[in-house]
């Protein structure tokens, strides 16, 4: 039962990654020849042909695709057109920076989102609730690049307290991470609130009160474990979205992660690098979803039994 579950997830995950890579592969090759874009206008035709042959671009599209997939399956993701090094190595160099930004943003999302959502649910209808929900709508409706620009205007240009671009010091992390965190915290707060409200009306919460438990214990020990179940899904989805959001945030703040690299690589037609980054992002999504599935079974003891009964 357990093994079958993992196998199904694995096959689905591989399919997801294959689809993403295929899509990007085709679109990139339909959107212009990288060789003519990278070489000066007056390059002789023979040189161009030489480059095309070197990068395998002279073959037919299906052939290129099959060769790419076969070598990718063996872990060879090609060489960067610009750098002449393995694309994977080029990308992996930047992964820690994106992870740092993404996880910092995620931590901010979790802390602010959960706190605001729980407070809003417990103080339903009060000023705290309205403030939290106003914040939620703000985060939800604000385009991330626009908030990023506003942050730069306020903290870098006007107050001059934080650097606006680069990634050389910890100070540089603050603005992009907070922007990323706030954008996603709104959704998490809203979700947490509705989940908490539903749980607070359950009979077992009345039981907890009848047992003489004080508010803190009722919330931490009885409400949150139940309310967490749907919230974990949204957090899992948000973790994926955070990586995607990081691409935009990284370009605004010139944060040297894979997002900035992706934008540059698309501009430069560095196809292997773009494909590698897309593959990594897809892999992150698949792994996150898998972790969410595992976390479900751990948070909600009813799930495992239900599966056991079905099979």
């Amino acid at each position: 039962m357990r093994l079958q579950f993992i196998l199904v997830k694995l096959v689905r995950g591989l399919l997801t990654m294959l689809l993403a890579v295929t899509f990007v592969f085709v679109v990139l090759r339909l959107s212009g020849d990288p060789v003519t874009m990278m070489l000066p206008d007056d390059t002789p035709a023979a040189v161009i042909a030489e480059y095309r042959a070197m990068w395998g671009l002279d073959r037919s599209l299906p052939e290129q695709y099959v060769r790419y997939i076969l070598s990718a399956a063996q872990g060879d993701l090609g060489y960067s057109f610009r750098d002449d090094r393995p694309a994977l190595a080029v990308v992996l160099e930047r992964v820690p920076m994106t992870l740092l930004l993404g996880l910092s943003g995620f931590a901010i999302t979790v802390v602010i989102g959960l706190f605001a959502g729980i407070a809003a649910a417990l103080k339903r209808g009060t000023g705290i609730d309205h403030a939290a929900m106003a914040f939620s709508i703000f985060g939800h409706s604000m385009p991330n690049f626009f908030l990023a620009i506003l942050m730069i205007l306020l903290f870098s240009m006007t107050l001059r307290v934080l650097p606006s671009s680069g990634g050389s010091t910890w100070w540089h992390l603050i603005l992009p991470a907070v922007t990323l965190g706030i954008i996603n915290a709104g959704t998490v707060a809203r979700f947490t609130r509705s989940s908490m409200l539903e749980v607070l009306h359950q009979p077992y919460m009345r039981t907890a009160r009848a047992k003489g438990l004080k508010l803190t214990r009722r919330v931490t020990s009885h409400a949150i474990p139940n309310a967490a179940i749907p919230v974990v899904t949204i957090l899992g989805l948000r973790l994926g979205a955070l990586i995607a959001g990081a691409i935009v945030i990284e370009s605004v703040f010139a944060w040297p992660g894979i997002g900035l690299m992706l934008v540059n690589a698309v501009g430069q037609r560095d196809l292997p690098v773009v494909q590698t980054i897309v593959l990594l992002v897809a892999l992150t999504m698949v792994v996150t979803n898998f972790i969410v599935d595992i976390a479900y079974g751990w948070l909600d003891p009813r799930i495992e039994t239900r599966e056991a009964k079905e099979s």
Binding site: P203, Y204, T207, R209, A210, K211, G212, P301, R302
Partner: peptide, 24 residues
């Protein structure tokens, strides 16, 4: 009141399955 509830006065509810916390 919380100190009295559960210690000196206790209540049993109708639908015990719903009245117990499902994840504990």
């Amino acid at each position: 009141l919380a100190e009295i509830r559960g210690r000196d006065m206790a209540m049993i509810f109708q639908d015990a399955t719903a009245a117990l916390n499902p994840v504990r």
